[in-house]
Nucleic acid binder design. Structure first.
Lengths: 298, 298
DNA sequence: GAAGGTTTATACGTTTTTGCATGAACAAGC
DNA sequence: GCTTGTTCATGCAAAAACGTATAAACCTTC
């Protein structure tokens, strides 16, 4: 039947792990950059090689057998080790040339990063900085990015974070808005104001405003957008009001603080990377340049 | 340039680990059942992919760089996990101990299986056989059970079925019943007989009897039970008549064939399992023992 | 009940990978 | 110094793996 000592194919194991983690062959194929028939064949070959039925083909979808589940438990360890290898490799890379991925909110990507990127370009022409302008939190542990700029303190182990200069967020509006809706002279005047909302919800923002005596609720957020840049553009065109970090607003002509006497919302900034990646020359370079620029008050 | 998301090739990692452990590409090739050029290319590709120089080519032999050593540390974990996967797979496919679920009608569970279970106990003391005495058809594809004993031909794809010895069912009654209701001397005498009914309906049974000239209808089935054992007990106590496979009735004292001249109802038996039979030693053992016993006429 | 969106399985042409040769560089032994 | 036995690197033909296209089965939704 089976060959006595068949050398296991690690790519087939990778295929099995990805299939289980993705839940389907198709999903695993997308994840690994392969195709569904390839994944199917690799998993089938692994089943034949190990002599264990791992999946039960039940129409649409695959169902893990008990035997398969036990295998996958060890496969997860294997996958974690593989990620550590990749992580260590990235950290060992002493070449300045290469790719560094940075995740950052789209607003920062659009208004804060450009001068920093030109600065990096001058320091290292062969360096490619991939900016993932995603507003959701990326997982640095899984190396979805090398560096992240965040406004919340990271609490995961294995990550090192540097706190940059704190900044302040104010409520801004365009002249067109104030002409149409009136300029507020007190916190109470915001009661009927219109704000741009975020997809993830505005509860935290509403709480911050309420703490300052601004009587707003969900009804004041009739529109929402995932894109911070879009929301900021709405504000600039006078569609609504919106909060923005002052470093960005200062570079946006045509917006004014709605009520200067209102206490600003403090915004902290952390620069985060993985411990293993600190040893990489190019990641360290990007990290240091970003940290230096973001820590300088201005 | 590197692609943004470079999926690591686990076989290349395996090649690197084997090379380090064997001390040379040639040695690793022999160990993995590959050739030296293949290993060399895989390691070179991994170096290019990770952007790390792992080996210093110094004439004869390779020397690990410091960066490579750090990678290998994690690679050893990966290799250990891989070995555990293979180990678990070997254990899964060869271990006789474990649980095998068998679904079978409760009548068979009560009267046919006991000697077979003791036989299995002798062959494999660590084997646990779960007998699900359910009269409804279980779904083997969804692994509600590993083996099913059925009396209808399975039509689902992906199932492995073996036809066992055919048996015959007769109509039985107890002396108490015959004394009270009279013993039928011809098929027509069953017109006012009382039969035990099944929950799922008696249409097929009625049709079989009618085909033999027995004039019965739903009115002859005043009572019904889901439990075949209960129904058979009713027959034994003289409450009513009932059909039963002769192999069971022969082991039940105190029941007699109601009308020996009546042609018996043929009953076929299939032993059914799913794909995992091919790889699971314990399922195969139970399957073979059941098949051998159920195929022997007696 | 029909339609759309999934899923896995199969067929075939093409790309990639592999193995076999062979060559070059080095170390050890005579 | 030469031989011998290693090592890793390189061409080239064959084999294996891959991707595209397509089919069949299933779940969901309207």
């Amino acid at each position: 039947m089976n060959k006595p000592h068949d050398i296991p194919d690690w790519n087939q194991m990778r295929a099995l792990l990805a299939t289980v983690q993705a839940g389907s062959l198709s999903g695993a194929a997308k994840r690994l950059g392969l195709t569904q028939p390839t994944l199917g064949r690799q998993v089938a070959a692994l089943e034949a090689s190990l002599g264990v039925t791992i999946f039960e083909r039940v129409g649409r979808g695959l169902v893990l057998t008990e035997a398969g589940a036990q295998l996958v438990a060890h496969l997860r360890d294997m996958g974690e080790a593989a990620e550590k290898v990749a992580m260590a490799a990235a950290g060992q890379s002493q070449s300045i040339d290469g790719v560094v991925r940075v995740t950052v909110s789209d607003v920062y990507a659009a208004h804060v990063l450009p001068p920093l990127l030109t600065q990096l370009r001058a320091r290292a022409p062969g360096l490619v900085v991939e900016v993932a302008a995603v507003n959701s939190i990326s997982d640095l542990i899984r190396r979805e990015a090398d560096i992240a700029i965040r406004h919340v303190r990271p609490d995961q182990d294995g990550l090192i974070a540097r706190r940059c200069a704190d900044s302040a967020a104010y409520i801004y509006g365009a002249p067109a808005y104030f002409e149409r809706e009136g300029r507020p002279n007190s916190a109470a005047d915001f009661a009927r104001a219109v704000f741009v909302g975020a997809f993830e919800g505005n509860d935290i923002f509403i709480a911050e405003l309420n703490r300052r005596g601004v009587p707003v609720g969900p009804a004041n957020f009739p529109w929402a957008t995932q894109s911070g840049v879009t929301g900021w553009e709405w504000v600039r065109q006078g569609l609504c009001l919106g909060a923005m970090v002052d470093v960005v607003a200062r570079r946006t002509p045509g917006v004014e603080v709605a009520l200067p006497s209102l206490e600003p919302i403090p915004v902290s900034t952390w620069l985060v990377t993985h411990r293993e990646l600190r040893t990489s020359a190019r990641i360290r370079l990007v990290f240091d340049v970003l940290a230096e620029a973001l820590s300088r008050r201005g």
